[in-house]
């Protein structure tokens, strides 16, 4: 049985909950795995902070909470600061380099940054930053198959924005730090 525990954190309004929903749906409906999504519980629910979590498993998810994460997606400084301690050794950190600026020591983890919000703005809508991040996560952390993620995105966003979101996914998926 393989299990992947993902924590997604950011501000309210960034689509943190939606991205967890899309990720969970991609895994359980389109990748035929099992997943469990829970949202915004605990002290981090205060203020504008927002977090959600997804457990992806090849078998039924027994324990649905994320106490230690295999993957942390940080879309805000606060989310980064709060949840970096639960990222386990060898875990993958994916963060928005414009929103998480004060970095701590990243020993024992794999950290990968992307200007997700900036890329989203270049695509025309800041709101798709979460989708850019999902594309990045599909590539860099291989949390679900890119096809499943694309299908889940298409399924979860209003139809008139499907194309924009697909481009956002692609932008994140194709992003390569060396290009910057």
């Amino acid at each position: 049985m393989s299990e992947l525990r993902v924590k997604i954190s950011g501000f309210g309004g960034q689509g943190i909950i939606l991205s967890a929903f899309i990720l969970g749906k991609a895994a359980s409906i389109y990748d035929q795995q099992h997943s469990s999504m829970t949202q915004a519980y605990g002290p981090e629910a205060r203020g504008g902070a927002c977090s959600s979590q997804v457990v992806i498993s090849s078998d039924n998810v027994e324990y649905p909470l994320v106490d230690t994460a295999d993957v942390l997606i940080a879309m805000s400084q606060e989310g980064y600061d709060t949840f970096l301690p639960i990222l386990k050794k060898g875990g993958i950190l994916l963060y928005d380099i414009d929103l998480v600026e004060k970095l701590q020591c990243h020993k024992d983890i794999i950290a990968k940054g992307i200007p997700a919000t900036r890329l989203a703005e270049e695509l025309g809508k800041k709101i798709v930053a979460n989708i850019v991040m999902l594309g990045f996560a599909a590539k860099q952390a291989k949390i679900v198959s890119p096809k499943a993620m694309q299908e889940a995105i298409a399924d979860s966003v209003p139809r008139k924005f499907t194309e924009l979101n697909m481009r956002a996914f692609q932008a994140g998926y194709d992003y390569n730090k060396e290009q910057e």
């Binding site: 099992h34 999504m37 829970t38």
Partner: peptide
């Protein structure tokens, strides 16, 4: 509340 607000297949 945990089961009520949890999303799964």
């Amino acid at each position: 509340a945990l089961v009520g607000h949890m999303t799964e297949k």
